[in-house]
Design a protein around this nucleic acid. Sequence first.
DNA 1: CCACCGAATGTTATAATATAACATTCGGTT
DNA 2: AACCGAATGTTATATTATAACATTCGGTGG
Lengths: 170, 170
Amino acid sequence: MNTPAEANHNHSHTSEHDHNKCVSEALGTAAQLCVVRGVQLTPIRQQVLELIWESHKAVKAYELLDRLKPLMDAAKPATIYRALDFLIEQGLIHRVESLNAFVGCNSSAHQHEQLLLICNNCQEVEERSAPEVMQALSQEIKQADFTVHSKAIEIHGVCAKCAEMTTTQS
Amino acid sequence: MNTPAEANHNHSHTSEHDHNKCVSEALGTAAQLCVVRGVQLTPIRQQVLELIWESHKAVKAYELLDRLKPLMDAAKPATIYRALDFLIEQGLIHRVESLNAFVGCNSSAHQHEQLLLICNNCQEVEERSAPEVMQALSQEIKQADFTVHSKAIEIHGVCAKCAEMTTTQS
DNA sequence: CCACCGAATGTTATAATATAACATTCGGTT
DNA sequence: AACCGAATGTTATATTATAACATTCGGTGG
């Protein structure tokens, strides 16, 4: 029932990782978590999650909308934003604040507050749990006598792959 | 020449710090830095910086626009966004990515990449240089073989002052 | 002096992102 | 069958941001 739809993703490292596995794991975990939590991963929500997972790039809401429309004629902005709200609440995706965009979360079951390494060249986002950073951060926040609700740690730059490509090719 | 305009800011800790000093220091430093760098802190830019410094809260672009209009009749969105672009380039303000808003930077002369503690209750933003965090972050980023261009580290929650108020008052 | 240049600003229009508000559907209960 | 709440449908609009071209203005060189 997890749509076959292998398809024509042209993400940059087709050769380097089994993206179908990424997707099926993400969807499988999401389904499990929702059952456990007693919340509904409806067809719309599942579809949006699947669209987000088509790549490891951050995706814009209206880009998702454009991609959803052919599949669901009734899709409107609210359709997307509601699905995104749900997926974020459930920790299944990250909102990338510095891009107003969204990306799948690999570790939705464990934790959701991670470092995001955002490549300005290929747009891919790498999550890192970075325990040392989080530890130092907790210390700092405690010193400031601040009560945390949420964290956004977003690093922009160039990923290893792109750095290599540009130094090699130029 | 640094407008006297003491005025009716109703920021939350009038009694606790000399805000006029904050403002005059910020404007003074900005003026110096711009001279040194050979860039122009024009009247518009200075005015916008001053408006941002009216409080320690993050301010929205269109809110600034509304406040600028009475002072400069020609003000339009582009007026504000251009001034903001300049101030950000010069490190004189921070863009708060998670709020699409802006706040003065206290340490424009030294460094610009800081931790922002954003109070969801009073909207005030505290900058912290957090050297241990930054150190751990550099390590982590190096391990990921990632080349940094910029960092946004934004923590949302409740500041000490607001936490005290709510526990005391309720 | 004046022709020109670049930086800043003025001006109009529109793109891109996001939410509000109310109507409808639909499965599950009473 | 009547009702309920969660999800979705639908229309409208608010909010944030940029594009594109015109104008101003201080300085520089002819």
